[in-house]
Structures are given as C-alpha cells and as structure tokens.
Design a protein around this nucleic acid. Structure first.
Lengths: 123, 123
DNA sequence: TCATTATATAACCATTTGGTTGTACAACCT
DNA sequence: AGGTTGTACAACCAAATGGTTATATAATGA
C-alpha cells in the first residue's frame, strides 16, 4: 500500500469516535473483541467492523490467545499521520500571529489603495 | 460543536488526498476555488464540495475579493488533531519498549489467573 | 461428546460520500 | 445593458459507511 493510501485509511479510521476510543484503550495494552466492545452500546459485530477498519489501516494487529484474538496497537500509521500533521505545526503554533498581522496589513493596503502591493501577499 | 465532533470532522476531512493537497496549497497562501481546482482532473463543483467538507471541519475559512471567495487555512482544527495524536507519540517513538514490558506483565498476570502455557505467539 | 465462549461472517438497511452535468447567481468590465 | 468570470446549487448516481440481526465457526472445558 502506498503512503498516500495509508494516510487515507489512517485518517478515515481516526474519524470515528468509537475507533479513537478503541485505540485509546489499546494504548494501555492489548484486549480481546468482547472486552473492547464492553464500553459501547453497540453489538459485537459492529465493533468487529470497526476493528477491521483499524486493521486495514494498519493501526492494530491481531494476536491469538486461546479462543481470543486480542488486538494491539501498531505504531507506524500513527507515526505517519503525526508526521504529516507536523508540517502544519509551525503554522498553527503562533507563527500565524505573523499571518494575522500580515492579513491586517493587506486589508489596510486594500482600503487605502495606493501603491501596488509587494507580493508579500501569499501570506 | 463539541471537541469530539470537531475531531470527527477534521480527521474525516484529512482522509481524502485531494483535500490534503488543497490544505498543502493553502499553507502557502490563500487561493480562490478555480485556482484550487486547477491541479486536479475533476470539476469545479467537485472541488467546491471538498471545500465545504474542509469548511465544516473549520479547517478553512472563506474571504472575499471581487468575484472571488478565496479560502485560507484556519489553525485550530489542525492543532486539535495534532494534539490528539501527540498522546501516542511516546508509544510509536520507541518508548513502547515500556509498553511491551507492560504487556508482558499483563501476560504474567493472566498466566497466574489461569495457569496454562505462555502463548508467546501474538503474531 | 457436548456446551460454552470468543469471534467472524452474511444479509440487510439507511445514510453519507464523492463524483457528475446542468444551471443559477453575483460581481466585474466595456 | 450585456458579456465574462468566479462560485454556488440542484439533481442524480454508484459506492462506501455504520449499524442491525441471525448464524457460522473455532477453541476450550467438563
């Protein structure tokens, strides 16, 4: 699977609160399907479907212990998703005060309408 | 909108490669719909739909400049998504040796509960 | 062997998603 | 006023999503 497709699958998997809760649970250790289903008011097959989504994204893997097939967290897709988002950290982490200031500047320029702007535009 | 719902909408928005590319483009500055549509082999309405998804997630906002309605990046949802993922950094960044230790501990507990073999498999 | 436990699978359903084409509307320019 | 440009909206469609119930399969334990 390509990196793009893994990102697609990972973000899609993370878009559901039930699945995020399952990941949070698994971060504290592996767990079987019934145990994972317990906190939720939905059927076991519904949880199994969520687990399939998580598994196809590579976010979890399946072990075996007697009749149980305990799931556990896999690191890689979380790392990739985080790395993708990291490229935007600089943007949202305060450097966008600069951005806001710049945008205000642009408004003022537009309002006074004097000289052609300096192509600082592009924020 | 609740934080959970924002996370739902944000991750769902990020799950599409077209939308991720749009965000990457907007990280370099605001842009109108047609300009955003240009790199893709899909119709303008299709892009507009993607923009609606991004907007409902709060990832972008709409400005106005003559006939254009330029979009620009909004920081907050990216910050929230990143922060959610940060909780797993420790896990995937190598410190999950600790996690493995924890899992081994749990196995031992299980073993004492019902004494049978150790089941190292776990694929 | 038989019942129990844990999980998987199938069939079904409503809703959402991601695209299309066609058209409407709004702002701008002559 | 009329044409052009930029965007939005409506109707439609196929496929995917998220849930259900019912049933099948697998491993264990008695």
């Amino acid at each position: 699977m390509t990196q793009t497709n893994r990102l697609n699958a990972t973000f899609a998997a993370l878009a559901d609160p039930t699945r995020r809760a399952i990941l949070a649970r698994l971060a504290r250790g592996q767990a079987g399907v019934l145990e994972l289903a317990k906190p939720f008011s939905m059927s076991q097959p519904a949880i199994s479907k969520h687990l399939i989504v998580l598994e196809r994204a590579g976010l979890i893997s399946r072990g075996r212990d007697r009749q149980r097939r305990p799931r556990r967290l896999s690191p890689k897709p979380l790392a990739e998703a985080t790395n993708w988002l990291e490229r935007y950290r600089e943007f949202w982490e305060g450097n966008f005060q600069r951005l806001d200031a710049l945008l205000d500047e642009m408004k003022v320029q537009e309002k006074t309408r004097r000289r052609k702007n300096v192509r600082r535009k592009q924020q």
